[in-house]
Simulated scan of single mutants.
Amino acid sequence: MNQIADKAMDAAGAYVKREKGTHLHALSEHVDAGLPLPTGTSALDQRDMAAYLMETVDFEIRAVERFVVVPELRTGGTFDRLLEYSGPGPDGEHVEGLFIGDLKTGSVEHGKLKMAMQLAVYSRGEFYDHTRVPVDTADRKAFAAWKKREVSAAEAAQAYTPLAGVSQKWGIVINLPAGSGECTLHWVDLEIGWAAARLGLDVRTTRGTKGAMLPWVSGVTRNRVA
């Protein structure tokens, strides 16, 4: 069934869109670093990158593709950009500081709350350095044994670095639909997103609640008839 589903998704172009998005993400990293685009970059991709460059000119890129964890939600993920920005905010008033940025290469008309949740979680994360794991994570037995090892709180804390000074009120979506030659920016309300993420945790926790239904136990004892 999984193979049939994969073939259906491939026929529908799902993997093409995913691969194109990954490709544009890679090209955008060249732009952010001030590097020339790779030889052979198509004219269509060049148009997309030109639009991306023009729309993000007001940002200073402070981090790219960094993994963070949020112990409160027992989750983690990799954000696209950490942006430094100073200028008009969503209400026209001046804002400045660090903002989580996310590059979307498809439509943003749907899933807006999901995007707000995603960026809100990132904004409340901590950098986690997985390279501090002293074993090959591909070796399942060794990794499983390592996870059971007791470590001091001080040793464990060395893998975490605070994500300091990042806005937990606003995030930024950079929308660059593949092949469109157009790029737009969108403010994302992270307070709404965080409330939804916390609600999701409550729902997940509640689903694991046991004891909501118990078997009936009669309080009447009947004497046997000899």
Rank of each mutant, 00 (worst) to 15 (best):
A153R: 13
G111F: 12
K114L: 12
V64R: 13
E72Q: 15
P215Q: 07
Y15I: 03
A116P: 01
I172N: 07
V68L: 13
E55R: 14
Q158G: 04
Q3K: 02
D102R: 01
G193V: 08
R81E: 01
V16H: 04
V225M: 08
Y128D: 02
Y128I: 14
V108M: 08
D6S: 05
G40P: 11
L82Q: 10
E72R: 15
G13C: 15
S180T: 14
V188P: 04
A226I: 15
T221C: 04
G171C: 09
V173Q: 05
Q158Y: 00
L176C: 06
H110A: 11
H110N: 13
L24D: 06
L98I: 11
G211C: 02
I4D: 14
P177I: 06
G211D: 07
V57A: 15
L73C: 05
H110P: 00
N2W: 13
V188Q: 12
Q168R: 15
S28M: 03
D6T: 10
D202L: 13
T206I: 07
D45Y: 07
R132Y: 04
A164P: 04
G34W: 05
G125L: 05
T56F: 02
V121H: 00
I61V: 11
A138W: 12
K112P: 04
P71F: 03
Y160W: 05
A51I: 09
K104A: 06
R62M: 14
T56N: 10
T184I: 03
E126S: 14
P38T: 14
R132C: 02
F99T: 12
G77M: 00
E93C: 10
A14W: 10
T221R: 12
G219V: 03
D139K: 10
G76C: 11
F143V: 02
M9D: 06
K210H: 13
D58N: 14
T39Q: 15
V95S: 09
A138M: 13
D129R: 05
T78I: 09
V188N: 02
D58K: 15
P215L: 04
D10C: 01
A50I: 03
D136K: 12
R140G: 10
Y128W: 12
S107L: 01
G77P: 00
